[in-house]
């Protein structure tokens, strides 16, 4: 365990050094990511204002803000911990560097997963926390009991795990098809489906985005939670889907490594 913590700490240190080496670039990256979040919040406000509507698919602007902030927090967490490493994985395969990773006296899965951290999105965390506590929570009609808080926590954790697994599955695809980038693009771009309440989408699309490509499980269930509809049935379904995708991930690692070859 100590060995893994040491490796993780080294990744944090190296990533931090790398970002601070180009401080202006890093600062601009932080600001840009912050501006992106802000622009999206203004966009939603404009949609409500220009449309002259108080609700979209049954949800007020404060509720939309709340879910948007939750989903973006999950996104930011995934970006910080997994995005850069998942991107580097492609280069490891292309350049044959995966051999080197496999010879290290530590789990290749762990090492490749936490090889590099990405901090650009970290400033946005403050924005989303402010949105949650100042522009959303005071306007929500939710009972803040232990059960509800735990359910919300579960939505965040499951959403984070599902999104991370999806990102990594799309990376593992490169072990089978080294030039196949479309899956990664589909996963990252379809995350935006989370921005809207689920009921704006047709039933078949909702089903597809909850079961087959479960991007609507990356925090979007918060909409059901707001209405008190996030019950055990949904929790079990989400956990079941998470387990299935973890199994797919494990099988892809095992099968992918057999396919991998390099002349490095």
């Amino acid at each position: 365990m100590t060995k893994y913590l040491k490796v993780f700490w080294r990744s944090v240190r190296l990533s931090t050094m790398k970002f601070l080496a180009y401080s202006t670039h890093f600062l601009l990256g932080l600001i840009t990511s912050f501006v992106y979040g802000l622009m999206n919040l203004i966009f939603f406000w404009l949609v409500f204002e220009a449309g002259g509507v108080s609700e979209i698919a049954g949800f007020s602007v404060h509720e939309v803000y709340f879910v948007f902030a939750i989903t973006q927090l999950i996104y930011v967490l995934t970006v910080i911990f997994f995005f850069e490493s998942a991107n580097m994985f492609r280069y490891h395969i292309h350049q044959g560097w995966l051999d080197m990773l496999m010879t290290k006296p530590i789990s290749t899965v762990f090492y490749s997963m936490f090889e590099r951290l990405h901090y650009f999105a970290s400033l946005s965390v403050f924005l989303y926390v402010i949105v949650i506590f100042y522009y959303s929570v005071p306007y929500l009609s939710v009972e803040w009991n232990v059960g509800n808080i735990l359910k919300l926590g579960l939505i965040v954790v499951v959403g984070w795990l599902i999104f991370s697994i999806l990102i990594w599955i799309s990376s593992l695809m490169w072990l089978f098809l080294p030039r196949f980038r479309i899956l990664r693009m589909v996963v990252t771009n379809s995350f935006d489906f989370n921005k809207n309440p689920p009921k704006v989408y047709p039933g078949a699309l909702q089903w597809f985005l909850s079961i087959i490509l479960p991007v609507l499980l990356i925090g979007n269930q918060t909409y059901y939670w707001l209405r008190g509809e996030y019950g055990w049935q949904m929790i079990l379904r989400d956990l079941g889907i998470l387990v299935i995708f973890i199994l797919i991930y494990i099988l892809m690692w095992k099968g992918g490594l057999k396919k991998y070859n390099s002349a490095n």
């Binding site: 449309g51 609700e55 979209i56 698919a57 693009m185 589909v186 771009n189 809207n196 704006v200």
Partner: peptide, 20 residues
Amino acid sequence: MRALGFLIMIFLWKAVYVQS
């Protein structure tokens, strides 16, 4: 891939236009 963004936008505005 840009079509996905377009699609998301359409569904959102459709829900708004239902009311206005």
